[in-house]
Design a binder for these strands. Structure first.
Lengths: 149, 149
DNA sequence: AAGCAGTCTCTGCCTCGGCAGAGATCTTGT
DNA sequence: ACAAGATCTCTGCCGAGGCAGAGACTGCTT
């Protein structure tokens, strides 16, 4: 039998975990993407390259699971990276349904070169927290530089 | 001078806050949307109705800020709700740039009727946590019922 | 051996949301 | 009074990602 953390009578949207998750996303991911705006690659592209670089993923469906996308979208993502010469597709010899992905030297170089951007981004984001020793206010500012909740 | 929580030499993607935020989103929001699949309204539609119902927002730009969307997308969202007869637009008398939004009786009823769905959803999601007294594993299962990381 | 279910990749179609520009209106400064 | 800037809404255009279906392949069952 389920606990009832939320009830319709007492529900306050802005205190709910759903609202906070959504907000957390809205306040971070777009900023991260913005740091890639001058690049011919998107933030998502970079994540894909990194997961290949680190051996976390090896195929299209792997990557789809990792990114939380469907395989159709992922196929197209891989198309873009392949056409830029950052990775190569190679049909698996043992299981011929699978297309193995591997970074080219260029892909490896790009992935590595863009790492500092993301490090800086998250360090900037988290900067305000340590100063306040994680004494987060109830539901107010989650991330530095936000407007009012 | 910024603290350096993350460094390129030690960065582990799956331990990073960015990865976890993204994952938290991917594992919750789509499930919430699924609970509205049988409805002629989307989860986002419902959130818009609720924020009007509770007086959190009153105009298009209000709503855009609340949802974290741009005003263009929000205009179209409002179009859809208006054409379904769930809200009405009325030009503000004092500031004629503004279009005030207000729920119709039908809109109010729909918003209220759909509340239990969302309550149940979050209660279901959180159920596993209390059992474990919030002893979350390092980076593994964040939400009940997920596949492996 | 043959069928059947499951997996993997790819494609076409569609919706959602971001971006940029336009027109109307308000506010502020001179 | 008037210009300049800001704000609000709306539109057209575009890319990203979800969904459904197809074709190729694997592995299990009978």
């Amino acid at each position: 039998m389920a606990k009832r953390y939320y009830r319709t009578e007492t529900f306050k949207a802005r205190r709910s975990i759903g609202y906070l998750i959504r907000r957390l996303n809205n306040l971070t991911i777009p900023h991260a993407q913005a740091r890639f705006a001058d690049q011919e690659l998107s933030f998502t592209h970079w994540i894909a390259l990194m997961s290949l670089r680190n051996g976390i993923t090896h195929s299209c469906s792997d990557l789809a699971r990792h990114l939380g996308h469907d395989t159709g979208a992922t196929t197209r993502l891989i198309d873009q990276l392949e056409s830029r010469g950052l990775l190569v597709r190679r049909r698996d010899a043992d299981d011929r349904r699978i297309v193995n992905l591997s970074l080219t030297a260029a892909g490896h170089a790009v992935a590595t070169a863009l790492m500092p951007r993301t490090m800086e981004f998250w360090n900037d984001m988290l900067e305000g927290f340590a100063d306040r020793k994680f004494k987060a206010p109830r539901s107010a500012v989650l991330i530095r530089g936000t407007t009012r909740v």
